[in-house]
Design a protein around this nucleic acid. Structure first.
Lengths: 122, 122
DNA sequence: CGGGATCCCGATAGATACTG
DNA sequence: CAGTATCTATCGGGATCCCG
């Protein structure tokens, strides 16, 4: 956690994983980034599908989760420094390596939690 | 959530998974149950390895996580009704089907979070 | 032995308003 | 557009004591 990566804080990889993805949207954010960079607003609106009902997403929360993912080394933030602001988030190699794990989670979840048929969309 | 299963509350299987395994010990509890029934005390002491440092586990927390796992249909609680008390927890078929997913998580976590060499023990 | 009851605390998430 | 600031409600988790 010295600078941008939080590693080896646990001796158990499962416990480490738990902490890494704790937060309501982290897994879905990673998943939604698998096809390339996305902007803040795209991610936010993407999260609205799949949430139960009329959930709005507090900008604080999304911002903090993105920061945490970046601090974990799973994504990077690219600020174009223009007006109006344009910021892109994309997966790091480590983040990309994590996508297959989420794919497994999705497959299991679709079978046992929802019965959705795993279309392309998140 | 009517009785013992909490399903289809989300349209996104990833979001459903997030809620399902939220809680500090749920994944590890499931993992530790893969080889057969375990008693409350066995699970508790099993969790102490792999936690950072001198963490003790509040009985409230462990009890609540076990109840949640049972309510989700991943484990079952078997009370032998004897004195002194004896209670066993074991995986349901659904819970067993989840073990390979945790295995994937472990493999990824070992590679990117800890570098442990995935021995038999949890 | 396997918890429940109670108290406490930090972290998390929502709502709202504001800004460079 | 992409956040920050503030405030508040709720939750997760730890500590301690107790009981059948």
């Amino acid at each position: 956690m010295s600078k941008t990566t939080a590693k080896r804080l646990h001796r158990c990889p499962v416990a480490a994983f738990q902490k890494l993805i704790s937060g309501k949207y982290k897994l879905r954010l990673l998943w939604d980034l698998q096809d390339g960079p996305r902007r803040y607003g795209e991610l936010r609106s993407g999260l609205l599908r799949g949430a139960d009902g009329t959930a709005q997403i507090a900008p604080r929360v999304l911002s903090r989760e993105l920061k945490a993912l970046a601090a974990s080394g799973l994504i990077v933030r690219k600020d174009y420094g223009v007006v109006p602001p344009k910021v892109e988030y994309r997966l790091t190699p480590m983040g990309k390596s994590f996508i297959p794990v989420i794919a497994e989670i999705r497959k299991w979840g679709a079978r046992y939690l929802g019965g959705e048929q795993l279309s392309m969309a998140s």
